[in-house]
Design a binder for these strands. Structure first.
Lengths: 158, 158
DNA sequence: TTGAATTATGTTATTACATAACGGGAGTAG
DNA sequence: CTACTCCCGTTATGTAATAACATAATTCAA
């Protein structure tokens, strides 16, 4: 982790082990199958790298890690990321220019994120959108997507 | 406006006239004076351009417009933008990589934005943060800043 | 099962967004 | 006056994302 604005260690990890990743990849494949979409090799590889990283990861880090030796070309990864995002398998974090695996497949698509500026990890929380929905209504504004990102310090980094 | 994903016109404007801009610039100068900060020429020019634009504007558009002839250097504008943001005079819109003048000097710094994908304009709304605050509390997460951006269609573009 | 349409990938190049680093000048406190 | 701090101009580079076009894989209908 290259985030350290502090001196403590950042090993309060929940990283998925390889079994966990395999399981998530299998779920993702099933989901695509059900949706009539193709989970191709580069898409799967991209998702694997996102899952393996413990927190939001940058597109160019994915590009660097994509092949055992040498980097991928940017469009390969960016196209995969777009697809995965459309499928609801990952989220883009706007305020970080980064991507994180979706951890809440259940809900009505509007997640919020708690982003630790110290350790770089994120927590996805389901949020009631009533506030912004109400304001939009008052302005006769039709909301399509909502981005909610809170930056600060997580429990372990306080 | 180069946003048109539609064919109607986008002249539902509230652009400030030059008097309005002058007034806002004077306010800004007063605010800096009160804060013991310097409102220098490049900062004032940057703010002027942001105010003159009717909606979020990109840094490189500011760079292009900075001088009557020829562009400014990026650091000139980015430094000014940082300063203006710290002073609460402008907001950065994360999901657009763009900047907009702050329209609500009164409140406890957490604005939300309604961003029209059709005409490119934004509306700043004051929002109660109870939802995310509550979630953060549950996770023992210390929130520093919150980004809330809703994309969709404004009243005039429905 | 062949071939046309669609969808996805590979590749090159470019565009867009943002900051590092350094030298110099203007304001200011001792 | 001078040391200090803050800000600016400039060059260079770093980082993020997409345009455009060629090729390959998959699908589906005839």
């Amino acid at each position: 982790m290259t985030h350290a604005a502090c001196d403590h260690d950042h090993h309060h990890d929940h990283a998925l082990d390889s079994n966990g990743i395999e399981a998530r990849l299998a779920e993702a494949q099933a989901l695509c199958l059900a949706a009539g979409e193709r989970m191709t090799a580069p898409r799967l590889r991209t998702l694997e790298l996102v899952l393996a990283h413990n927190g939001p990861i940058k597109a160019y880090d994915l590009i660097d890690r994509f092949h055992p030796e040498g980097a991928a070309k940017p469009p390969t990864v960016y196209r995969s990321l777009s697809f995965l995002e459309q499928m609801g398998l990952i989220h883009r974090i706007e305020s970080l220019n980064a991507f994180v695996a979706c951890h809440d497949h259940t809900e009505s698509h509007s997640a919020a994120f708690l982003l630790c500026e110290c350790c770089g990890k994120s927590e996805e929380v389901a949020l009631n959108l009533s506030g912004i929905t109400q304001k939009a209504l008052e302005s006769d504004f039709k909301v399509e997507r909502v981005t909610i990102e809170a930056k600060g310090r997580c429990k372990a980094c306080r």
